[in-house]
Amino acid sequence: MNRREFANWLGVGALASSLPIAIAACQGDTADAPTDAPADTAATVEGDGFAAIGTVADLDAAGFLANVRFQGSRVLVIRDPANADAVIAFNAVCPHAACTVEWGEETLVCPCHDSFFNFDGTVASGPAAEPLAQFEAKIEGDQVLVKV
């Protein structure tokens, strides 16, 4: 084997050994919500398909409600800025890289790649190109209910 063949094999080996790292870097951050995570067992589904995600008092205290294992989905609930008596629930999975979107007081934020979403789920700035999916949500008594 001459030096050229050796250098070629060395380069192929370096490329092959870095491939798993590159693949892992391109996947979304799902460490907080493993794919085999069970659904939230505390959420009891009513006959109309809605389940309680939290109380109105908790929503008002924190400004949002979030659950990464709510009926097998990642859910984020905020007050509707257009109607203080209503709530909006989002699928908290960023459509760009499947990271969990967080409430940021001014906008909804994906911490992985700095995508920002308006309170209606539309993209304020990318790299995400698609809006957040919404779930049906309502307030009933002192409970915030979501239908996924």
Rank of each mutant, 00 (worst) to 15 (best):
G126Y: 02
P38W: 03
D142E: 12
A82K: 13
F70L: 08
T55R: 04
L108G: 12
A82H: 10
T55W: 04
D80H: 04
D142Y: 04
P131E: 05
H113M: 02
N83K: 10
A31F: 10
D120K: 09
R4K: 11
F135G: 05
G104A: 10
W9S: 12
D114S: 11
D85H: 12
A61S: 10
K147C: 07
V56F: 02
V12Y: 12
C112L: 05
P111F: 12
R74S: 11
V12E: 11
A137H: 00
A89F: 07
W103V: 14
V12L: 15
A51W: 03
V56W: 01
E5T: 15
Q134N: 04
V87T: 02
A89W: 01
A98Y: 14
N2A: 10
V93M: 10
K138S: 00
I23E: 00
A92T: 05
E46I: 09
A22Q: 06
R4C: 11
P95H: 05
V93F: 10
A84R: 06
A92L: 08
M1N: 15
H113E: 07
A52Q: 12
I21M: 12
L145W: 00
L145T: 00
F117D: 02
L108E: 07
A86V: 00
L10D: 11
A22F: 12
R79L: 03
P95S: 11
V123F: 11
P95Q: 02
A42Y: 07
G126T: 03
L65M: 14
P38R: 08
A7T: 14
A33Q: 11
Q71C: 12
A43F: 04
V45H: 03
S73I: 00
E130R: 10
A137E: 01
A37I: 14
V109Q: 11
F117K: 00
L132Y: 01
A61P: 00
I88L: 13
L145Y: 01
V109D: 11
N8W: 14
S125N: 01
A61L: 07
A128M: 05
E136Q: 06
D85E: 14
G49E: 14
L15W: 08
A31T: 14
T122F: 02
D114F: 07
L59V: 02
E140L: 05
D40Y: 03
V77Y: 02
P131S: 07
V93W: 12
F64A: 09
A133G: 06
A124D: 04
C26R: 05
A14N: 05
V101H: 07
T41P: 11
R3M: 14
P38L: 10
G11L: 14
A66Y: 06
A89Q: 03
A86W: 00
E136D: 04
N83G: 09
V101F: 05
T30A: 15
A43S: 07
A24I: 13
F116S: 07
G54P: 03
A31C: 12
E5M: 15
A137V: 01
R69H: 15
A129D: 03
E105L: 13
F117M: 00
A62Y: 13
V148A: 09
A7Y: 13
A42S: 13
R3Q: 15
L132S: 02
G54C: 03
G63F: 15
T122C: 06
D40T: 04
C110N: 10
I78C: 09
L19N: 08
I53M: 07
T122K: 06
D60I: 09
F70C: 08
